[in-house]
Design a protein around this nucleic acid. Structure first.
Lengths: 114, 114
DNA sequence: CGGGATCCTTAAAGATACTG
DNA sequence: CAGTATCTTTAAGGATCCCG
């Protein structure tokens, strides 16, 4: 890590972009194929439409996903990963694998996240 | 009980534990050697003492760090990683490496973090 | 030195209604 | 369908003082 200037710490920078509690989940859901807004909402029901919108906008702004809007009726909007965010997929897979231990050990159990 | 199957998603579980925006940073700083409360506060000055306290308590509760208190005057308290959280270190290193591209490309630039 | 206990200020998230 | 707009509520975080 960079102990001199935390503003230049790459991990801090990365966390600014993917540190949101939903973003890794969104990215991993997009890994296999593009998804529509409603699909993502179904996949992550605890994520409200409003928050999903903001997270997608931030990810788009930061070039981690691209937004593809099709002029159909009803409208269709797809989100897909960029090359750069695809590099994150194995990282989240490792995290996911690590997370299995939490389930086994029931570390979480009753916690109210929400 | 309830069958919210996303609760069984290992990535979701992992994010519950390390998804806080400071926790990966704290864990990375502890990777080489144990650190004292004050050291961590110096290393991450933007993290207030109160929030640092809460983050350390949560990490301790979730068995990602251990707290070692020495009966000295002035008191000394050290935090160190557990075996399980040491497995996270390479993951955060990958994230850190990935984060360098953000700095290069100046993706972040002006953003109201704080 | 390493916290805990309060109080207080905002930023984030929820609920609901509406639109191209 | 995929969002906006607006209002309300919650909770994260800061400031301050205290204590073993």
């Amino acid at each position: 890590m960079n102990e001199k200037n935390h503003e230049n710490c790459p991990l801090t920078q990365a966390l600014l972009v993917i540190g949101g509690k939903w973003k890794p989940l969104i990215i991993s859901h997009l890994q296999k194929s593009p998804k529509r807004f409603g699909q993502l909402h179904t996949l992550i029901p605890k994520l409200s439409r409003k928050v999903l919108t903001s997270q997608l906008q931030e990810l788009t702004r930061d070039k981690l996903i691209t937004r593809h809007s099709y002029a159909e009726t009803p409208p269709r909007v797809e989100y897909r990963l960029t090359e750069k965010s695809k590099e994150l997929v194995p990282i989240f897979q490792s995290m996911s694998k690590w997370g299995m231990y939490l389930i086994d050990k029931k570390i979480i159990e009753e916690r109210e996240d929400n």
